[in-house]
Design a protein around this nucleic acid. Structure first.
Lengths: 342, 342
DNA sequence: ATGAAAGCGCTAACAC
DNA sequence: GTGTTAGCGCTTTCAT
């Protein structure tokens, strides 16, 4: 990469700047800036010369410098639990599409359900001066975000409310959805219904359990302790919980599973059995139609879209106080939830 | 929202800088920089005062300015087809984990399989000066990346090779996997085997079809035109293609599906039928075990991890020429691929 | 141990 | 139409 006298090319690893382009095109720095940004006030001939210099040098505007000057990055951050979870892929994609419509890039990160990692990620995004932030909270205390929000970072919480601060929030109706799902089982004659959910510090897990209790209470049924299991959603724990509820002299005749990961494992457990245990799951899962799994479905893309639209509305300066939006769920009957008690 | 009309520059949105922190702590700017970056040469007492000022003001370092000065962003970009696709979620997550291990953030974007959008996205990432780039190509001409790569942006292509430029590439063994899958069907006695794949401009689609032809040739079978269908992977097209192959006087007795989306639709089509058509699919799908679907599985997380590790090795300055890595696939027999011909 | 000054590459505000 | 100048907030260099 030696430099020749004729056309001084930048060295490997060094990028041409507007100044280089200006020198090569024989114009002033600001003229290059005008061309690059499509601003008016440049004659076609000058513009052509500048464009040629840009091509020849392989110039690409340095957005860090631009951001430093302009104050806005045209990017937003999304912190979620795990991008590999089939719930978050479509959610993230929906956010990305809205961001794209607003000319913004999306940076997303997985908290792995770890509050420290959530905070680390959020603050890294703030250091990069994202214009806005969508957070699926892992932690329960978000006061660390107060200075950021004060400083103008629009923030929307999704799936679970923020902890100890006021902020826009978009939720699915976990309580109502679970209540409806359990009521569905009750309507099909079940009385002993088991609930297998996520760890009790997770907001949605609590809400869904509340929905379960509400439906059971509506039916005048005393819930036995052994019918409820909360904890990690790994297959081992969930399978054990299901087996336990299905054993003994008075086993449950139906199960309600608290999220997609639980449902997958429960379906596997039930598939190994001779009897026909009823099942309703929270969250839809791929191919549930073929497996005949009745679910309470929430639409991850709609959740993401709604959150992103809120965010951009706020960025555009709606001065409204923080609002909470709850999106409805939908019961999808496919067979497993309509089985009668054994 | 207390934006008074009299304030041309609202305090809202103005963030404290190191200068502000320095003023408040009664120290020099550079001392604040030292504290923020954990550099040595600051007495514990000074450090404490600076920390207090940071807390009080809610200071957060502006990474744009840092990047402008340092040249590296500690971020990498990932351009894929669609984050909502169950193949890319785990891939992206794996890339993220490797990036995290190297202290980098991941920015990802979906090209929606549109070459223009791919280029737009890639160049936006370059403008933000990502240190490296992982691209699942949508387009067939990547010469637009030459100046970027020359300028030092480490680039790795994944799933499909780059077009018209030399670059590191990580692929799954589409040819070998498809050949093995089709050979599996042949070994179970099938002779009339249909192939339903993605659009023929996609590299993996071509390779998998090549694998199909190779296996059929190995068995000495002349492939009829009506046994092969390539095109969009939307359910309508795929279902029609499958129905067509299964109709007529000499229908196929087995199907090979070219990717996860195709497989899902074919499974649905076959589920509606009385007969037992054999099926092997490329890519694993969730709950395929319960449905008994035999697949040629590739590991998306391994693909992502491998690509990211290559990227960081390059960033750390391995001056080796571009290399191509091919990851093996694995045949997972679950029943549908072992059915005999009708 | 600490700080003052000089940029990084760009855009805003004015020159001409 | 076009160019010049002064920063944006940080790190680097070099004094002290």
């Amino acid at each position: 990469m030696a430099e020749t006298a004729r056309h001084p090319e930048p060295r490997y690893g060094t990028r041409p700047t507007m100044k280089d382009v200006a020198a090569r095109a024989g114009v002033g720095l600001k003229t290059v800036s005008r061309v690059v940004n499509g601003e008016p006030g440049v004659t076609p001939d000058t513009e052509r010369r500048v464009q040629e210099a840009i091509e020849a040098l392989g110039f690409r505007r340095n957005d860090s410098a631009r951001v430093l000057r302009k104050g806005r990055t045209a990017s937003i951050g999304l912190v979620l639990e795990d991008l590999a979870d089939p719930f978050y892929g479509p959610l993230s994609r929906a956010v990305e599409e809205v961001a794209r419509d607003h000319g913004a890039l999306l940076i997303n990160g997985s908290s792995a359900e770890d509050p420290e990692r959530e905070q680390e990620l959020v603050l890294a995004l703030c250091a990069r001066r994202v214009d806005g932030l969508i957070v699926i909270p892992a932690g329960e205390d978000h006061r660390y975000l107060e200075p950021e929000i004060k400083a103008g970072v629009a923030t929307v919480f999704v799936d679970r409310p923020a902890g100890l601060i006021e902020a826009d929030t978009v939720l699915s109706d976990s309580f109502g959805g679970a209540r409806e799902g359990v009521a569905h089982l009750l309507a099909h004659g079940h009385r002993r219904i088991g609930f297998i959910g996520d760890r009790p510090h997770i907001h949605t897990a609590v809400e869904r359990l509340r929905g379960y209790h509400a439906a059971m209470a509506d039916a005048g049924i005393d819930v036995r302790e052994s019918w409820v299991s909360q904890g990690a959603t790994d297959p081992g724990r969930v399978a054990a919980a299901a087996e336990a509820m299905l054993a003994g002299p008075e086993p449950v005749t139906a199960l309600f599973s608290g999220n997609n990961r639980v449902t997958v494992t429960v379906v596997r457990v039930l598939a190994r059995r001779e009897d026909h245990i009823a099942l309703v799951g929270f969250d839809d899962i791929e191919l549930a139609d073929l497996l005949g799994v009745t679910v309470v479905s929430q639409d991850p893309a709609a959740v993401g879209r709604t959150a992103a639209e809120h965010l951009f509305r706020r960025l555009e300066g709606s001065g409204r106080p923080p609002a909470r939006v709850t999106l409805p769920t939908r019961l999808v009957a496919r067979g497993s939830g309509e089985l009668p008690p054994a």
